[in-house]
Design a protein around this nucleic acid. Sequence first.
DNA 1: CCTTTTCATGAATACGTTTTCATAAACTAA
DNA 2: TTAGTTTATGAAAACGTATTCATGAAAAGG
Lengths: 339, 339
Amino acid sequence: MGKITIKDVAREAGVSISTVSNALNNVDVLNPVTKSHVLKVAKQLNYVPNLNGKQLRSGKTKMLGFFTTSVSGPYFYKLVESMSRECDRLGYGLNVFITKDRHVIMSNILGRRVDGAIIYEELRIDEEDITAMEKEKIKAVFLDRVLQNETMGSVIFDSYVAGYEATKYLISLGHKKIAYISGVDTMFDSVERKEGYLAALRQYQLPTSEDYILQGYFEEEGTYNAVKSFIHLHPDKLPDAFLAGNDVSAIGCIQALKKHGYEVPLDISVMGFDDIDIAQYFSPPLTTVRNQIARQGSLAVNHLVHMIQKKELGSAQKLACELVVRGSSHVKIDRNDHI
Amino acid sequence: MGKITIKDVAREAGVSISTVSNALNNVDVLNPVTKSHVLKVAKQLNYVPNLNGKQLRSGKTKMLGFFTTSVSGPYFYKLVESMSRECDRLGYGLNVFITKDRHVIMSNILGRRVDGAIIYEELRIDEEDITAMEKEKIKAVFLDRVLQNETMGSVIFDSYVAGYEATKYLISLGHKKIAYISGVDTMFDSVERKEGYLAALRQYQLPTSEDYILQGYFEEEGTYNAVKSFIHLHPDKLPDAFLAGNDVSAIGCIQALKKHGYEVPLDISVMGFDDIDIAQYFSPPLTTVRNQIARQGSLAVNHLVHMIQKKELGSAQKLACELVVRGSSHVKIDRNDHI
DNA sequence: CCTTTTCATGAATACGTTTTCATAAACTAA
DNA sequence: TTAGTTTATGAAAACGTATTCATGAAAAGG
């Protein structure tokens, strides 16, 4: 005996296919007696509807797709977890696609494997693809990416303000020589944070210098190496404080400083962005700027579902950030005082 | 103009539907001229095949489903990343479902949204469901779970040996009072590690005691609280070493010990399991037992695809572990010596 | 009692694709 | 040439479901 279909249930229950379909989908035109009878037979036969048939006919999958290059690291799993939770709440499933292949993404979206898409910015979908999606009236929400386009949604962090506030905070501690450890230059967050950092320096009339902008690639090891080589190259020009592009980077920075005998935060203050899980347990606990990651996830899903169900266009949403002061930053101490 | 289907391509190219299908799917019965002409027209119309139609007809989705309760934490993202990579390599897509709802899982599997399933043990699928899958000849691989059943695959870590070897190592450092911080008692790894721990103690004639088995729930905070209350209850009976159920737990343990003025590893050795990313950067760097997580992921996918394509039954695979000695463990120092 | 309305059900179609099978055309072997 | 064979193509069926519409029965209205 092969796979049991709606046909088998119909035959066994002595009714038509449409009646079974109506019973299973709670269409209230049925005699309650027939309905419960059909349901009983269906359960008894262990009937499970074939989703491909269902989806083909209805044109809906009740699935949202999250397209990303990676799920590694605290940012992603907080994000995915919150999206998943919100999907659950709204009666959708979440489909996580990890890929860098634009073609895979588009064929899944345009091929209707999902009802809508949430796309992580690093994927950099072209305008051309977005146009294709518009034509098909497909809804999408972009994360961490600003769009020229007004038809799709987006949820971004106000990273410019984050960078600005962080820098302002370091200045308020008395630091004057503040270095920035950059992430990846194609990424929105990274660039915005740097712009905010530069803006704050300018506002307080502090000098900005290319030497004080390192490349850490948002990675622990990348930052470790960058800071290490900075120390070797400019042992005399060490900054008062490092503003790392994210917490992972801040950790790499602190590792490198420790390794070379500097104490954080007494000798040098270090802070990051994101407030990842380990930030508070790290030694020293990280001063950082917290993004509302879970909020971003649930908002993206909410927005997308709204767009799908109300057939509306998307809009750009911006989330505020929050300064978290912990042990890796300290009021500037002039060591010369002690001599 | 609505969605472009294979029909439109056929009309536009002046051929039949079957010819278009053959051209697109590289069935080599076609005149190369017709084929390339069809392909050109398809591209020109921006045709993208509807996956639901495709899947319904062919009975295949070329998708594997990973069913899990969570993707949070280093274990999961390493696992997911490696599974995704392996799926790519084998021409499959990976579908991550985060849910605890048995019904959601079964309707996705039996409803053929995926060609096969990888199931994380915490979900505890019933025998009944497994039987249902067998009947439908659906293939599945279970992670971290041993099966009575011989029809499905499984990939587990040899956690018993891991627990045994870790304990043996601590004993070799001269520790005699060794406590175990348990994870979740329904989880295979947690139980096996504890059994290995107990076996090692017995073998070396060291006493085992219920007092020395704490509940940390595989969580930082849970462990922190457990260790804290242990210190309050038995300040005089502190162990020489803590063997934590995993690294996250070990970190919580060390936090608690530090908080109460104990030095790790000089006063007390602590070690964990898993070798998560931060283990080496933590202060002190964690001594731990490393599991081949990435290997588990790729093996599971490989095995599953093999089962699907060769229509074979699954088997149980066991992965060896590896002791990683770092700074959180130390040869036993009897502080009385110094007095 | 007849007409109209409501109610419950089933037959048939459509969704977009792959695949089987028939057929026509173009070769090959005598 | 004629029969047999290969090659390229298309018509039609099938996958499993939701949905539209027709139909018959029962209830309501007069």
